[in-house]
Amino acid sequence: MRSLALLVALAALVALPFATTGYVVYLANLLLTFTVICLGMHLVLGEAGQFSLAQAAFYGIGIYTSGLSGAAFGWPFPCSVLAAGLVSAVVGLLIGGLALRMRDIYLALATFAFGEAMQWVLMDWTSVTGGPNGLHIAPARLFGLQLLTDKQAYPAVLVIAILMLGLAILLSRSRLGRAFRAVRESEVAAMAMGVPVKSTKLIAFALSAFFAGVGGGMFALYSTYIHPDSLGFQTTILVLTMVVVGGLGSIAGAVGGAIVFGLISELLRQTPSYQEVIYGLILIVFMMFAPKGLFAFLGESFGRLRRA
């Protein structure tokens, strides 16, 4: 049953560019990008229980790394996407090393401060990032092939998203994933079981930065322009709400939250006057009545129906 559903979903994703318009494909690209960033948030917050409110900053580092390296060295896109992830991960290691001395609210606020400072750097380092004029991203290349449209970029975006999803599932099932969850439940107990708490937290932080950076690399595949304005706290909050509304702590929740909530935000764009009110009410209602996220809520409701 479950594998059938997955096959259907995969078939739909593969068939998408043949059946729909450019806008839908653009939307699919964006949702897949956010899925990957949400997987990063899932790793650090859902699995390891550590706050990181700097996901937008790592996403931004990824976009700029990928865009600039593609333009400067003419790298094929798999290299520039990987570079985007790695540069973000290295920055994540450095920031994590400082920030992870704190916990809970202090960690959240320190990473928030880093995110804001990073946005300022992107805005004011004019010679490299173009500053407030934004950056035009050259089309991604592979062996002389150029990805010029959303439809051409879609296969690459889809493959990267699936690879990252696979990586997230592997990580979650590995010894490392178990260590993450042990740290989340109780640092003292994890320490007593021989889990190196500090380095485990650091790895979770760097991995989440890696995912966000790869997300940035994916964005650079189909987008031609980036402005630091779209890399602020709002974006981090969007990712956080996606993960929490989908269901904190499960991969299905992160993926589902990214897709469902991404679609909701996009649909609300059609009704600009009440967009914010509806968006806010959705968040409030979810937290009041479905605190474990959309999927746990649906599961419980179906269970109740079946029993009745």
């Binding site: 909050i237 956080l240 709400t241 929490v244 914010e276 009110v277 806010g280 968040l283 979810f286 009041m288």
Partner: peptide, 14 residues
């Protein structure tokens, strides 16, 4: 606390 934070975010949007 994460859920409380998200609810306050919702309030701010409203």
């Amino acid at each position: 606390p994460v859920n409380l934070v998200i609810a306050t975010l919702g309030f701010s949007y409203v």
